[in-house]
């Protein structure tokens, strides 16, 4: 499954809720306000590092850039993708949007 999270982890439980359902080989994709989860030094850094042990995590580059976050501020091993990359991920796995 492709878990897509679009809400900020600071205002919504969507990230946490999605992680309860994440299994081996699943992908986590952060879009819109969900990208704040991947900012270094934030409250969710350790949580995401834990996810990265077993799963790939992607961030939508358009949303990262729009929010003034530099690539260097993104937690290591979280990969940035564009909309075409987004489309590819949906091809790979069945998406569920966690709003």
């Amino acid at each position: 499954m492709l878990h897509i999270v679009k809400r900020s982890p600071y205002e919504s439980s969507a990230l946490n809720d999605s992680l309860k359902y994440i299994k081996e080989k699943d992908i986590l994709l952060l879009i819109e306000d969900g990208v704040y989860s991947a900012k270094k030094g934030g409250k969710f850094e350790n949580l995401l590092k834990g996810v990265l042990q077993n799963n790939e995590v992607f961030c939508l580059i358009a949303d990262v850039k729009a929010r003034g976050i530099e690539g260097s501020e993104i937690i290591e091993n979280v990969k940035l993708i564009d909309y075409k990359g987004f489309v590819d991920k949906v091809c790979e796995q069945n998406p569920l949007m966690w709003a």
């Binding site: 679009k6 879009i31 819109e32 306000d33 564009d82 909309y83 075409k84 987004f86 489309v87 091809c91």
Partner: peptide, 20 residues
């Protein structure tokens, strides 16, 4: 109220460009 329509639009355009 939300960004959903923008994300969807960009997704649709990308998917079509890729031949989906």
């Amino acid at each position: 109220m939300h960004q959903a329509m923008d994300t969807a639009y960009n997704f649709i355009v990308a998917a079509m460009e890729m031949g989906h």
